[in-house]
C-alpha cells in the first residue's frame, strides 16, 4: 500500500498533543501540518518519518528527549492514529494517509 498523498506530493495531517506535550509544541494542542508524502530515501512516509519531521520542523523546544528517545517516541507517550492505539496500526511503520489524525498523549505527569 502506498502513502496516499495529494497532487503536490504532500500529505495533510492533523496532529494533537496533550498530557503536557503541548508545552513542547508552542503550547498549542492542535496543529494542521502538511509534510512530504515520501521520506528522505524516497520511501512512502511512515509514522516514524512523521515523528522525525515533527521534531525537526514543528518542535521549537530544544528538549527533544522529552518527545523522542532512541529514534522513536519516548516510552510513556501514547500515540493514537485515528483514535486507535498505534500498535494496532503498525506503530512506526504505519504509512501516512491524507487527513489522518495523530494524537500524542504523555502519561508521565502526576496523578
Amino acid at each position: 500500500m502506498s502513502t496516499q498523498s495529494n497532487e503536490a506530493g504532500m500529505v495533510l495531517l492533523e496532529v494533537e498533543f496533550t498530557g503536557g506535550l503541548e508545552l513542547l509544541f508552542s503550547n498549542q494542542r492542535k496543529h494542521k501540518i502538511s509534510l512530504p508524502g515520501s521520506d528522505e530515501k524516497g520511501q512512502p512516509a511512515t509514522a516514524a518519518f512523521l515523528v522525525r519531521y515533527l521534531c525537526e520542523n514543528l518542535m521549537k523546544d530544544t528538549r527533544k528527549e522529552m518527545f523522542v528517545m532512541d529514534g522513536t517516541v519516548r516510552p510513556g507517550i501514547l500515540v493514537l492514529i485515528n483514535d486507535a492505539d498505534w500498535e494496532l496500526e503498525g506503530g512506526d511503520l504505519y504509512e501516512l494517509k491524507e487527513n489522518d489524525n495523530f494524537f500524542f498523549i504523555s502519561t508521565l505527569h502526576g496523578g
Binding site: G20, D85, L108, G110
Partner: peptide
Amino acid sequence: YEKEIVYYALHKGLDYFTTECIYSP
C-alpha cells in the same frame, strides 16, 4: 496500568490536569 488509566480518562472524556510540579520531581 498507567497506560490504561490514561486511556480510560481519554475515552470517558474526563477532565484532568496535566502539568508537572514546577519544583523538580
